[in-house]
Computed example of a mutant assay.
Amino acid sequence: MGVVQRVKKPTTRKGKKFLEERGPKIIENTKQSLFFYGRSSSETLKRCMKDLYHLKKPDAYPLKGKHDVLPMENSTPIETSSKKYDSSLFFFGSHTKKRPNNIIIGRLHDHQILDMAEFGVENFKSLDEFEGEKFPLGMKPCLLFAGPQFELDPTLKRIKNLLVDAFQREPVSSLRLQGLEHVIMFTCHENKIHMRSYRISLKKSGSRTPRVELEEIGPSMDLSVRRTKLASDDLFNSACKKPKELKVKTVKNIKRDVFGSKLGRVHIRQQDIKKLQTRKMKGLKKTRKERASHKKPTKSQPSNKIDN
């Protein structure tokens, strides 16, 4: 027989507020990421993890020390840490002779492992190796993906979805052109994903549309796909299911144009134009002859005159 765990309800206002923040919400908070290392690491891996942590700040939490964890073999420690720190993303770095400069990027659903992808870092260049201004803290990057493999290969298509989930921030409803200052581009070529980071500069072009220039600011790396552990289609679809409160209810015969104006369509029966009530004007009144021609014949009525 299994052990039944006793669920203790909070008795203080602070405890209730803490559980409400950890509980499910209709609109989720910004996803937090955990950064930690395995039993051994290299100098290249440390600089790579440091730059990735800089990309994710302030929505990231580093775990100190070394951890005897093998995510691909046993994911229980990661699920425990995810529940403790209320995070749904993790970046794990390790370095061994068989898999040097190894990074595992994964995500969780309901504090259970959903997807994991293992990459080997090659041709790494850190942020310090590039000159010029860097992106400010908390900047929302523009994510670009190039390569037909991201759409043709099912595994790379799921990896693309994982990378979007890992590097995006809170969603926005509108965007200002001057707000685009940072671009992260992923190019897939020969089973390798080339990651590059650029700063956007808007220059005068003599027209309303500015001239766009890209300046590489780092980090720069080539990621070779080693191992993956992806969720089934049914589990992935259930994790992506939207709550009923966020679904937009369709209203018949009502739509919006490109400017956001609300347009409605009214259906009426077919009408006789001759019987339509128009504006009462002297020029539109019928003459005596027209009224006499349209007047229905009446039955002969007895005369009320009295003969003398």
Results as ranks from 00 to 15, higher is better:
residue 1 M to C: 07
residue 2 G to H: 11
residue 3 V to D: 04
residue 3 V to K: 10
residue 4 V to M: 08
residue 5 Q to K: 14
residue 5 Q to F: 12
residue 6 R to I: 12
residue 12 T to V: 02
residue 18 F to P: 00
residue 21 E to F: 14
residue 23 G to C: 07
residue 23 G to S: 15
residue 25 K to G: 09
residue 25 K to R: 15
residue 30 T to V: 15
residue 33 S to A: 12
residue 37 Y to N: 04
residue 37 Y to L: 15
residue 38 G to I: 11
residue 51 D to E: 05
residue 52 L to S: 00
residue 58 P to G: 02
residue 59 D to W: 03
residue 59 D to Y: 06
residue 60 A to P: 04
residue 61 Y to T: 05
residue 64 K to M: 12
residue 67 H to K: 07
residue 67 H to F: 14
residue 68 D to V: 05
residue 72 M to W: 05
residue 72 M to Y: 10
residue 77 P to W: 00
residue 77 P to T: 00
residue 77 P to C: 01
residue 81 S to I: 08
residue 81 S to E: 09
residue 87 S to M: 04
residue 91 F to N: 00
residue 95 H to Q: 00
residue 98 K to R: 12
residue 99 R to S: 12
residue 100 P to Y: 05
residue 104 I to K: 01
residue 106 G to H: 02
residue 106 G to N: 02
residue 108 L to I: 02
residue 108 L to F: 03
residue 109 H to M: 05
residue 110 D to T: 05
residue 111 H to M: 10
residue 111 H to G: 01
residue 115 D to Y: 03
residue 116 M to V: 01
residue 118 E to S: 14
residue 119 F to K: 01
residue 119 F to C: 02
residue 121 V to D: 02
residue 127 L to S: 11
residue 127 L to E: 09
residue 129 E to C: 06
residue 129 E to H: 08
residue 130 F to Y: 13
residue 131 E to Y: 07
residue 132 G to A: 06
residue 141 P to F: 08
residue 142 C to N: 07
residue 149 Q to K: 08
residue 150 F to Q: 00
residue 151 E to P: 03
residue 152 L to C: 06
residue 153 D to N: 13
residue 155 T to L: 06
residue 155 T to Q: 09
residue 160 K to N: 08
residue 161 N to D: 13
residue 165 D to T: 11
residue 168 Q to C: 14
residue 168 Q to L: 14
residue 172 V to D: 02
residue 173 S to V: 11
residue 173 S to T: 13
residue 175 L to H: 10
residue 178 Q to C: 08
residue 181 E to I: 12
residue 183 V to F: 07
residue 184 I to N: 01
residue 188 C to W: 03
residue 193 I to C: 04
residue 196 R to K: 13
residue 199 R to L: 13
residue 200 I to S: 02
residue 202 L to T: 09
residue 203 K to C: 09
residue 209 T to P: 02
residue 213 E to G: 04
residue 214 L to M: 15
residue 214 L to P: 06
residue 219 P to M: 04
residue 219 P to A: 06
residue 232 S to P: 01
residue 236 F to K: 07
residue 237 N to S: 15
residue 238 S to T: 10
residue 240 C to V: 05
residue 246 L to M: 14
residue 247 K to I: 15
residue 247 K to Y: 03
residue 248 V to S: 08
residue 248 V to M: 11
residue 249 K to D: 14
residue 254 I to S: 02
residue 260 G to K: 04
residue 264 G to L: 13
residue 265 R to G: 07
residue 265 R to T: 14
residue 269 R to D: 13
residue 270 Q to H: 13
residue 271 Q to G: 01
residue 278 T to L: 14
residue 279 R to Y: 10
residue 285 K to S: 15
residue 286 K to C: 09
residue 287 T to Y: 06
residue 291 R to I: 15
residue 297 P to I: 03
residue 301 Q to F: 07
residue 302 P to C: 04
residue 302 P to G: 07
residue 305 K to C: 11
residue 306 I to H: 05
residue 308 N to R: 12
